[in-house]
Design a protein around this nucleic acid. Sequence first.
DNA 1: GAGTGGTCTAGACCACCAT
DNA 2: TGGTGGTCTAGACCACTCG
Lengths: 239, 239
Amino acid sequence: MASNKFMMIYNDLSKKIQHNKYQIGSCLPSENDLAINYGVSRETIRKALNYLSQNGYIQKIRGKGSVVLDAGRYDFPVSGLVSFKEVAKRSGKTWSTCVHELTLIQPSDEIKDKLRITDKTYVWKIVRSRIVDGETIILDKDYINQDIIPTLTKETCEDSLYQFIEEDCDLMISFARKEFSVDPITNEDKIYMTLKNDQQVVVVKSQVFLDDARLFQYTESRHRLDKFRFIDFARREHQ
Amino acid sequence: MASNKFMMIYNDLSKKIQHNKYQIGSCLPSENDLAINYGVSRETIRKALNYLSQNGYIQKIRGKGSVVLDAGRYDFPVSGLVSFKEVAKRSGKTWSTCVHELTLIQPSDEIKDKLRITDKTYVWKIVRSRIVDGETIILDKDYINQDIIPTLTKETCEDSLYQFIEEDCDLMISFARKEFSVDPITNEDKIYMTLKNDQQVVVVKSQVFLDDARLFQYTESRHRLDKFRFIDFARREHQ
DNA sequence: GAGTGGTCTAGACCACCAT
DNA sequence: TGGTGGTCTAGACCACTCG
Protein backbone atom coordinates (compact mmCIF):
# COMPACT_ATOMS: atom_id res chain seq x y z
CA MET A 1 0.00 0.00 0.00
CA ALA A 2 2.43 2.65 1.17
CA SER A 3 5.55 2.82 -0.93
CA ASN A 4 7.66 4.72 1.58
CA LYS A 5 9.87 2.82 3.91
CA PHE A 6 9.01 4.99 6.90
CA MET A 7 5.28 4.65 6.20
CA MET A 8 5.52 0.89 5.93
CA ILE A 9 7.42 0.81 9.20
CA TYR A 10 4.84 3.12 10.79
CA ASN A 11 2.00 0.89 9.63
CA ASP A 12 3.78 -2.20 10.84
CA LEU A 13 4.57 -0.80 14.27
CA SER A 14 1.13 0.76 14.78
CA LYS A 15 -0.52 -2.55 13.95
CA LYS A 16 1.78 -4.37 16.34
CA ILE A 17 0.90 -1.88 19.08
CA GLN A 18 -2.82 -2.21 18.39
CA HIS A 19 -2.53 -5.98 18.50
CA ASN A 20 -0.62 -5.82 21.78
CA LYS A 21 2.55 -7.29 20.31
CA TYR A 22 4.22 -4.55 22.30
CA GLN A 23 3.02 -4.29 25.89
CA ILE A 24 1.50 -0.98 26.98
CA GLY A 25 3.98 0.79 29.24
CA SER A 26 6.97 -1.10 27.91
CA CYS A 27 9.53 0.24 25.48
CA LEU A 28 9.89 -0.40 21.77
CA PRO A 29 13.27 -1.71 20.63
CA SER A 30 15.83 1.10 20.43
CA GLU A 31 16.14 3.16 17.27
CA ASN A 32 19.40 1.48 16.43
CA ASP A 33 17.91 -1.99 16.84
CA LEU A 34 14.89 -1.08 14.72
CA ALA A 35 17.19 0.33 12.06
CA ILE A 36 19.07 -2.97 11.91
CA ASN A 37 15.90 -5.10 12.04
CA TYR A 38 14.17 -3.20 9.26
CA GLY A 39 17.40 -2.75 7.31
CA VAL A 40 17.11 1.02 7.05
CA SER A 41 18.96 4.01 8.43
CA ARG A 42 18.22 5.42 11.85
CA GLU A 43 16.72 8.63 10.43
CA THR A 44 14.11 6.58 8.58
CA ILE A 45 13.19 4.81 11.81
CA ARG A 46 12.97 8.18 13.49
CA LYS A 47 10.48 9.41 10.91
CA ALA A 48 8.25 6.44 11.61
CA LEU A 49 8.58 6.88 15.37
CA ASN A 50 7.78 10.59 15.19
CA TYR A 51 4.65 9.75 13.28
CA LEU A 52 3.71 7.21 15.94
CA SER A 53 4.32 9.86 18.58
CA GLN A 54 2.16 12.44 16.81
CA ASN A 55 -0.69 9.97 16.63
CA GLY A 56 -0.48 9.07 20.29
CA TYR A 57 0.96 5.60 19.98
CA ILE A 58 4.22 6.18 21.82
CA GLN A 59 5.99 8.69 24.04
CA LYS A 60 9.68 9.13 23.38
CA ILE A 61 11.86 9.62 26.44
CA ARG A 62 15.42 10.70 26.03
CA GLY A 63 17.94 8.29 27.50
CA LYS A 64 15.31 5.61 28.05
CA GLY A 65 13.34 4.67 24.97
CA SER A 66 9.95 4.87 23.29
CA VAL A 67 7.17 3.96 25.70
CA VAL A 68 4.04 2.38 24.25
CA LEU A 69 0.83 4.27 25.13
CA ASP A 70 -2.72 3.00 24.97
CA ALA A 71 -4.12 6.18 23.47
CA GLY A 72 -3.96 5.01 19.89
CA ARG A 73 -7.21 3.13 19.78
CA TYR A 74 -10.11 5.51 19.44
CA ASP A 75 -13.28 3.59 18.78
CA PHE A 76 -15.03 6.61 17.31
CA PRO A 77 -12.40 8.87 15.77
CA VAL A 78 -14.14 12.08 14.84
CA SER A 79 -10.77 13.66 15.39
CA GLY A 80 -9.00 14.23 12.13
CA LEU A 81 -10.66 14.56 8.76
CA VAL A 82 -12.87 11.58 8.10
CA SER A 83 -16.04 11.26 6.06
CA PHE A 84 -19.33 10.18 7.60
CA LYS A 85 -19.23 6.94 5.64
CA GLU A 86 -15.77 6.11 6.96
CA VAL A 87 -16.83 6.79 10.57
CA ALA A 88 -20.13 4.99 10.18
CA LYS A 89 -18.61 1.86 8.69
CA ARG A 90 -16.25 1.54 11.63
CA SER A 91 -18.95 2.13 14.23
CA GLY A 92 -20.82 -1.08 13.49
CA LYS A 93 -24.21 0.67 13.68
CA THR A 94 -26.88 0.76 11.01
CA TRP A 95 -26.74 4.06 9.18
CA SER A 96 -27.93 5.77 6.05
CA THR A 97 -27.93 9.15 4.36
CA CYS A 98 -30.95 11.03 3.04
CA VAL A 99 -30.35 13.76 0.44
CA HIS A 100 -32.91 16.56 0.83
CA GLU A 101 -31.43 19.03 -1.59
CA LEU A 102 -28.83 19.09 -4.35
CA THR A 103 -28.78 22.33 -6.28
CA LEU A 104 -26.40 24.59 -8.12
CA ILE A 105 -26.73 28.07 -6.62
CA GLN A 106 -25.34 31.55 -6.80
CA PRO A 107 -23.94 31.76 -3.30
CA SER A 108 -24.81 34.35 -0.69
CA ASP A 109 -22.13 36.75 0.48
CA GLU A 110 -21.58 34.65 3.59
CA ILE A 111 -20.95 31.49 1.59
CA LYS A 112 -18.76 33.40 -0.86
CA ASP A 113 -16.69 34.56 2.07
CA LYS A 114 -16.40 31.08 3.57
CA LEU A 115 -15.41 29.57 0.22
CA ARG A 116 -13.18 32.57 -0.57
CA ILE A 117 -14.71 33.20 -3.98
CA THR A 118 -15.40 36.68 -5.27
CA ASP A 119 -16.51 36.30 -8.85
CA LYS A 120 -19.57 34.62 -10.27
CA THR A 121 -18.57 31.08 -9.41
CA TYR A 122 -21.45 28.68 -8.93
CA VAL A 123 -21.69 26.53 -5.85
CA TRP A 124 -23.24 23.13 -5.17
CA LYS A 125 -25.54 23.22 -2.18
CA ILE A 126 -26.21 19.84 -0.56
CA VAL A 127 -28.47 19.21 2.41
CA ARG A 128 -28.23 15.73 3.86
CA SER A 129 -29.42 14.07 7.03
CA ARG A 130 -27.67 11.14 8.62
CA ILE A 131 -29.77 8.39 10.12
CA VAL A 132 -28.14 6.16 12.73
CA ASP A 133 -30.11 3.36 14.36
CA GLY A 134 -33.37 4.85 13.13
CA GLU A 135 -32.84 8.40 14.39
CA THR A 136 -31.75 11.40 12.35
CA ILE A 137 -29.00 12.78 14.52
CA ILE A 138 -26.89 14.79 12.07
CA LEU A 139 -27.83 17.40 9.49
CA ASP A 140 -25.08 18.32 7.02
CA LYS A 141 -25.18 21.41 4.82
CA ASP A 142 -22.38 21.39 2.25
CA TYR A 143 -21.30 24.11 -0.15
CA ILE A 144 -18.87 23.03 -2.85
CA ASN A 145 -17.03 25.12 -5.41
CA GLN A 146 -18.32 24.06 -8.83
CA ASP A 147 -15.12 25.20 -10.55
CA ILE A 148 -13.41 22.33 -8.73
CA ILE A 149 -16.20 19.72 -8.69
CA PRO A 150 -18.12 20.26 -11.97
CA THR A 151 -20.68 17.51 -11.66
CA LEU A 152 -22.51 15.91 -8.76
CA THR A 153 -25.38 13.47 -8.55
CA LYS A 154 -27.82 12.55 -5.83
CA GLU A 155 -26.41 9.02 -5.82
CA THR A 156 -22.92 10.35 -5.11
CA CYS A 157 -24.21 12.43 -2.20
CA GLU A 158 -26.03 9.43 -0.80
CA ASP A 159 -22.93 7.28 -0.96
CA SER A 160 -19.65 9.04 -0.20
CA LEU A 161 -18.75 12.47 -1.46
CA TYR A 162 -15.14 12.12 -0.35
CA GLN A 163 -14.73 8.80 -2.10
CA PHE A 164 -16.12 10.37 -5.31
CA ILE A 165 -13.82 13.37 -5.04
CA GLU A 166 -10.71 11.34 -4.34
CA GLU A 167 -11.30 8.36 -6.61
CA ASP A 168 -13.40 9.65 -9.49
CA CYS A 169 -12.23 13.26 -9.65
CA ASP A 170 -8.69 12.21 -8.78
CA LEU A 171 -8.31 15.00 -6.24
CA MET A 172 -6.60 14.73 -2.88
CA ILE A 173 -8.38 16.04 0.21
CA SER A 174 -5.70 17.32 2.51
CA PHE A 175 -6.62 19.49 5.47
CA ALA A 176 -9.40 21.41 7.18
CA ARG A 177 -10.07 24.20 9.61
CA LYS A 178 -12.88 23.24 11.97
CA GLU A 179 -14.83 25.30 14.45
CA PHE A 180 -17.04 23.74 17.10
CA SER A 181 -19.82 25.58 18.89
CA VAL A 182 -23.29 25.00 20.32
CA ASP A 183 -25.98 27.00 18.52
CA PRO A 184 -29.75 27.36 18.90
CA ILE A 185 -31.82 25.10 16.69
CA THR A 186 -33.31 26.36 13.43
CA ASN A 187 -36.52 25.45 11.63
CA GLU A 188 -34.48 23.27 9.31
CA ASP A 189 -33.20 21.30 12.29
CA LYS A 190 -36.77 20.78 13.47
CA ILE A 191 -37.84 19.58 10.04
CA TYR A 192 -35.01 17.22 9.27
CA MET A 193 -33.70 15.97 12.62
CA THR A 194 -35.14 13.70 15.28
CA LEU A 195 -34.95 16.25 18.07
CA LYS A 196 -36.26 15.69 21.56
CA ASN A 197 -36.83 18.76 23.65
CA ASP A 198 -33.43 20.10 22.65
CA GLN A 199 -33.11 23.78 22.01
CA GLN A 200 -29.52 23.55 20.76
CA VAL A 201 -27.32 21.46 18.48
CA VAL A 202 -23.55 21.10 18.25
CA VAL A 203 -22.40 22.82 15.07
CA VAL A 204 -19.13 21.95 13.37
CA LYS A 205 -18.20 24.43 10.65
CA SER A 206 -15.40 23.23 8.36
CA GLN A 207 -13.44 24.69 5.51
CA VAL A 208 -11.87 21.81 3.63
CA PHE A 209 -8.84 22.11 1.36
CA LEU A 210 -7.18 20.02 -1.32
CA ASP A 211 -3.62 18.94 -1.73
CA ASP A 212 -2.76 22.06 -3.69
CA ALA A 213 -4.23 24.32 -0.98
CA ARG A 214 -7.41 25.09 -2.92
CA LEU A 215 -10.48 25.52 -0.70
CA PHE A 216 -13.24 23.43 -2.24
CA GLN A 217 -15.82 22.85 0.50
CA TYR A 218 -17.55 24.63 3.33
CA THR A 219 -19.69 22.49 5.61
CA GLU A 220 -22.01 23.05 8.51
CA SER A 221 -22.52 19.78 10.32
CA ARG A 222 -25.26 19.93 12.94
CA HIS A 223 -25.25 17.20 15.61
CA ARG A 224 -27.86 16.33 18.21
CA LEU A 225 -26.39 17.15 21.62
CA ASP A 226 -26.67 13.69 23.14
CA LYS A 227 -25.12 11.97 20.13
CA PHE A 228 -22.11 14.19 19.74
CA ARG A 229 -18.72 12.89 20.78
CA PHE A 230 -15.24 14.00 19.85
CA ILE A 231 -11.94 12.56 20.94
CA ASP A 232 -8.69 14.39 20.65
CA PHE A 233 -5.04 13.69 21.30
CA ALA A 234 -3.18 16.89 22.10
CA ARG A 235 0.48 17.62 22.63
CA ARG A 236 1.60 20.63 24.62
CA GLU A 237 3.66 23.28 22.89
CA HIS A 238 6.68 24.39 24.86
CA GLN A 239 8.32 27.50 23.53
CA MET B 1 14.64 30.77 23.87
CA ALA B 2 14.80 27.69 21.71
CA SER B 3 18.28 26.28 21.37
CA ASN B 4 17.54 24.12 18.34
CA LYS B 5 18.23 25.49 14.94
CA PHE B 6 15.03 24.08 13.44
CA MET B 7 12.94 25.52 16.29
CA MET B 8 14.50 28.94 15.89
CA ILE B 9 13.79 28.79 12.18
CA TYR B 10 10.23 27.63 12.88
CA ASN B 11 9.68 30.49 15.30
CA ASP B 12 11.18 32.99 12.87
CA LEU B 13 9.10 31.82 9.93
CA SER B 14 5.85 31.53 11.90
CA LYS B 15 6.30 35.08 13.17
CA LYS B 16 6.97 36.31 9.68
CA ILE B 17 3.82 34.59 8.43
CA GLN B 18 1.75 36.01 11.29
CA HIS B 19 3.12 39.48 10.56
CA ASN B 20 2.33 39.10 6.88
CA LYS B 21 5.96 39.29 5.80
CA TYR B 22 4.98 36.42 3.56
CA GLN B 23 1.78 37.00 1.60
CA ILE B 24 -1.03 34.50 2.12
CA GLY B 25 -1.31 32.31 -0.94
CA SER B 26 2.26 32.97 -2.05
CA CYS B 27 5.17 30.59 -1.65
CA LEU B 28 7.98 30.64 0.87
CA PRO B 29 11.50 30.63 -0.57
CA SER B 30 12.52 27.17 -1.69
CA GLU B 31 14.07 24.75 0.78
CA ASN B 32 17.45 25.18 -0.87
CA ASP B 33 17.25 28.97 -0.63
CA LEU B 34 16.16 28.82 3.00
CA ALA B 35 19.03 26.44 3.75
CA ILE B 36 21.49 28.93 2.29
CA ASN B 37 19.86 31.96 3.95
CA TYR B 38 19.80 30.40 7.39
CA GLY B 39 23.17 28.71 6.92
CA VAL B 40 21.91 25.22 7.73
CA SER B 41 21.40 21.99 5.85
CA ARG B 42 18.26 21.30 3.88
CA GLU B 43 17.07 18.60 6.29
CA THR B 44 17.06 21.14 9.11
CA ILE B 45 14.93 23.48 7.01
CA ARG B 46 12.62 20.59 6.25
CA LYS B 47 12.12 19.91 9.96
CA ALA B 48 11.07 23.51 10.49
CA LEU B 49 8.76 23.44 7.45
CA ASN B 50 7.13 20.18 8.55
CA TYR B 51 6.40 21.76 11.89
CA LEU B 52 4.86 24.78 10.14
CA SER B 53 2.78 22.40 8.06
CA GLN B 54 1.55 20.45 11.08
CA ASN B 55 0.45 23.66 12.72
CA GLY B 56 -1.44 24.88 9.69
CA TYR B 57 0.89 27.65 8.60
CA ILE B 58 1.83 26.26 5.20
CA GLN B 59 0.88 23.62 2.69
CA LYS B 60 3.76 21.94 0.89
CA ILE B 61 3.17 21.14 -2.76
CA ARG B 62 5.62 18.91 -4.58
CA GLY B 63 7.19 20.54 -7.59
CA LYS B 64 5.86 23.97 -6.67
CA GLY B 65 6.74 25.12 -3.18
CA SER B 66 5.37 25.84 0.30
CA VAL B 67 2.16 27.89 0.09
CA VAL B 68 1.40 30.22 3.01
CA LEU B 69 -2.02 29.57 4.60
CA ASP B 70 -4.03 31.90 6.82
CA ALA B 71 -5.09 29.17 9.20
CA GLY B 72 -2.30 29.73 11.69
CA ARG B 73 -3.86 32.57 13.61
CA TYR B 74 -6.46 31.27 15.98
CA ASP B 75 -7.65 34.01 18.28
CA PHE B 76 -8.90 31.53 20.85
CA PRO B 77 -6.82 28.39 20.64
CA VAL B 78 -8.57 25.82 22.81
CA SER B 79 -7.02 23.32 20.48
CA GLY B 80 -3.89 21.81 21.94
CA LEU B 81 -3.07 21.62 25.60
CA VAL B 82 -3.24 25.05 27.16
CA SER B 83 -4.08 26.14 30.69
CA PHE B 84 -7.04 28.39 31.46
CA LYS B 85 -4.69 31.17 32.52
CA GLU B 86 -2.81 31.00 29.24
CA VAL B 87 -6.04 31.13 27.21
CA ALA B 88 -7.57 33.84 29.39
CA LYS B 89 -4.55 36.11 29.22
CA ARG B 90 -4.63 36.04 25.42
CA SER B 91 -8.37 36.63 25.18
CA GLY B 92 -8.22 40.16 26.55
CA LYS B 93 -11.27 39.61 28.78
CA THR B 94 -11.49 40.06 32.52
CA TRP B 95 -11.32 36.72 34.21
CA SER B 96 -10.73 35.10 37.57
CA THR B 97 -10.74 31.72 39.28
CA CYS B 98 -12.63 30.75 42.41
CA VAL B 99 -11.44 27.71 44.37
CA HIS B 100 -14.38 25.92 46.00
CA GLU B 101 -12.60 22.83 47.21
CA LEU B 102 -9.05 21.62 47.67
CA THR B 103 -8.84 18.33 49.51
CA LEU B 104 -6.73 15.22 49.69
CA ILE B 105 -9.01 12.25 49.16
CA GLN B 106 -9.03 8.51 48.81
CA PRO B 107 -10.33 8.25 45.27
CA SER B 108 -13.43 6.42 44.13
CA ASP B 109 -13.04 3.44 41.83
CA GLU B 110 -13.95 5.62 38.83
CA ILE B 111 -11.22 8.15 39.60
CA LYS B 112 -8.72 5.37 40.31
CA ASP B 113 -9.51 3.97 36.89
CA LYS B 114 -9.14 7.32 35.16
CA LEU B 115 -5.84 8.02 36.92
CA ARG B 116 -4.74 4.41 36.47
CA ILE B 117 -3.86 3.86 40.11
CA THR B 118 -4.62 0.66 41.93
CA ASP B 119 -3.02 0.94 45.33
CA LYS B 120 -3.74 3.34 48.14
CA THR B 121 -2.47 6.46 46.47
CA TYR B 122 -4.02 9.70 47.65
CA VAL B 123 -5.44 12.16 45.17
CA TRP B 124 -5.88 15.93 45.25
CA LYS B 125 -9.41 16.96 44.41
CA ILE B 126 -9.84 20.52 43.20
CA VAL B 127 -13.11 22.20 42.29
CA ARG B 128 -12.75 25.57 40.62
CA SER B 129 -15.06 27.89 38.76
CA ARG B 130 -13.88 30.27 36.08
CA ILE B 131 -15.43 33.71 35.93
CA VAL B 132 -15.21 35.59 32.64
CA ASP B 133 -16.74 39.05 32.29
CA GLY B 134 -18.72 38.57 35.48
CA GLU B 135 -20.27 35.21 34.61
CA THR B 136 -19.21 31.79 35.83
CA ILE B 137 -19.08 29.86 32.59
CA ILE B 138 -16.69 27.00 33.37
CA LEU B 139 -16.55 24.54 36.25
CA ASP B 140 -13.35 22.52 36.53
CA LYS B 141 -13.02 19.39 38.63
CA ASP B 142 -9.42 18.19 38.82
CA TYR B 143 -8.01 15.00 40.29
CA ILE B 144 -4.24 14.90 40.69
CA ASN B 145 -1.99 12.02 41.72
CA GLN B 146 -0.40 13.03 45.03
CA ASP B 147 2.57 10.75 44.47
CA ILE B 148 3.55 13.11 41.66
CA ILE B 149 2.40 16.46 43.08
CA PRO B 150 2.94 16.15 46.85
CA THR B 151 1.82 19.62 47.92
CA LEU B 152 -0.79 22.06 46.68
CA THR B 153 -2.17 25.30 48.05
CA LYS B 154 -5.31 27.29 47.41
CA GLU B 155 -3.19 30.13 46.08
CA THR B 156 -1.61 27.85 43.48
CA CYS B 157 -5.02 26.66 42.34
CA GLU B 158 -6.22 30.24 42.05
CA ASP B 159 -3.25 31.24 39.96
CA SER B 160 -1.99 28.63 37.52
CA LEU B 161 -1.66 24.96 38.32
CA TYR B 162 0.31 24.27 35.16
CA GLN B 163 2.77 27.05 35.83
CA PHE B 164 3.31 25.64 39.35
CA ILE B 165 3.80 22.11 38.03
CA GLU B 166 6.19 23.10 35.29
CA GLU B 167 8.17 25.81 37.04
CA ASP B 168 8.12 24.93 40.73
CA CYS B 169 7.86 21.15 40.53
CA ASP B 170 10.16 21.11 37.50
CA LEU B 171 7.93 18.68 35.64
CA MET B 172 7.09 18.79 31.97
CA ILE B 173 3.47 18.49 30.88
CA SER B 174 3.49 16.72 27.58
CA PHE B 175 0.26 15.32 26.15
CA ALA B 176 -3.39 14.61 26.83
CA ARG B 177 -6.30 12.49 25.73
CA LYS B 178 -9.45 14.59 25.60
CA GLU B 179 -13.05 13.57 25.18
CA PHE B 180 -15.80 16.07 24.35
CA SER B 181 -19.47 15.43 24.95
CA VAL B 182 -22.64 17.26 25.98
CA ASP B 183 -24.03 16.04 29.30
CA PRO B 184 -27.05 16.94 31.45
CA ILE B 185 -26.39 19.47 34.19
CA THR B 186 -25.78 18.36 37.77
CA ASN B 187 -26.62 20.01 41.07
CA GLU B 188 -23.00 21.12 41.30
CA ASP B 189 -23.35 22.92 37.97
CA LYS B 190 -26.47 24.71 39.26
CA ILE B 191 -24.67 25.78 42.43
CA TYR B 192 -21.43 27.00 40.96
CA MET B 193 -22.21 28.14 37.41
CA THR B 194 -24.19 31.06 36.02
CA LEU B 195 -26.65 28.94 34.06
CA LYS B 196 -29.59 30.32 32.15
CA ASN B 197 -32.29 27.85 31.27
CA ASP B 198 -29.68 25.38 30.06
CA GLN B 199 -30.24 21.74 30.78
CA GLN B 200 -26.83 20.67 29.43
CA VAL B 201 -23.18 21.65 29.52
CA VAL B 202 -20.25 20.78 27.27
CA VAL B 203 -17.98 18.41 29.18
CA VAL B 204 -14.32 17.97 28.32
CA LYS B 205 -12.74 15.03 30.11
CA SER B 206 -8.96 14.97 29.95
CA GLN B 207 -6.23 12.63 31.05
CA VAL B 208 -2.99 14.59 31.17
CA PHE B 209 0.48 13.07 31.01
CA LEU B 210 4.01 14.18 31.77
CA ASP B 211 7.14 14.01 29.69
CA ASP B 212 7.97 10.57 31.03
CA ALA B 213 4.49 9.24 30.14
CA ARG B 214 3.24 9.31 33.74
CA LEU B 215 -0.48 10.13 34.03
CA PHE B 216 -0.78 12.79 36.71
CA GLN B 217 -4.15 14.51 36.17
CA TYR B 218 -7.74 13.73 35.31
CA THR B 219 -9.99 16.68 34.68
CA GLU B 220 -13.65 17.27 33.99
CA SER B 221 -14.09 20.72 32.53
CA ARG B 222 -17.73 21.78 32.28
CA HIS B 223 -18.54 24.65 29.92
CA ARG B 224 -21.75 26.62 29.48
CA LEU B 225 -23.13 25.80 26.03
CA ASP B 226 -23.18 29.31 24.64
CA LYS B 227 -19.63 30.08 25.75
CA PHE B 228 -17.97 26.98 24.40
CA ARG B 229 -15.83 27.24 21.31
CA PHE B 230 -13.14 24.98 19.95
CA ILE B 231 -11.03 25.42 16.85
CA ASP B 232 -9.15 22.60 15.23
CA PHE B 233 -6.77 22.14 12.35
CA ALA B 234 -7.00 18.65 10.95
CA ARG B 235 -4.99 16.85 8.31
CA ARG B 236 -6.42 13.90 6.45
CA GLU B 237 -4.71 10.55 6.78
CA HIS B 238 -4.16 8.78 3.50
CA GLN B 239 -3.12 5.19 3.87
C1' DG C 1 15.43 20.89 -18.58
C1' DA C 2 15.63 23.46 -14.42
C1' DG C 3 13.66 23.82 -10.10
C1' DT C 4 10.74 22.07 -6.52
C1' DG C 5 9.71 19.07 -2.60
C1' DG C 6 10.02 13.72 -0.89
C1' DT C 7 12.90 10.09 0.61
C1' DC C 8 16.91 7.88 2.31
C1' DT C 9 21.62 7.29 3.86
C1' DA C 10 25.99 7.09 6.89
C1' DG C 11 28.06 9.37 10.02
C1' DA C 12 28.87 12.76 13.61
C1' DC C 13 28.25 14.97 18.14
C1' DC C 14 25.34 15.95 22.06
C1' DA C 15 22.34 15.39 26.42
C1' DC C 16 20.28 12.31 29.20
C1' DC C 17 19.52 7.86 31.86
C1' DA C 18 20.92 3.81 33.82
C1' DT C 19 24.46 0.92 36.24
C1' DT D 1 30.48 4.06 31.03
C1' DG D 2 27.47 2.34 27.54
C1' DG D 3 23.05 2.88 25.63
C1' DT D 4 19.25 5.87 24.62
C1' DG D 5 17.04 9.49 21.97
C1' DG D 6 17.88 14.61 19.80
C1' DT D 7 20.11 17.27 16.42
C1' DC D 8 22.57 18.27 12.32
C1' DT D 9 25.10 17.51 8.08
C1' DA D 10 26.29 16.65 2.97
C1' DG D 11 25.04 14.24 -0.49
C1' DA D 12 22.29 11.23 -3.31
C1' DC D 13 18.29 9.91 -6.13
C1' DC D 14 13.44 10.37 -7.17
C1' DA D 15 8.74 12.41 -8.74
C1' DC D 16 6.60 16.23 -9.78
C1' DT D 17 5.54 21.02 -11.98
C1' DC D 18 6.30 24.48 -15.16
C1' DG D 19 7.91 27.02 -18.94
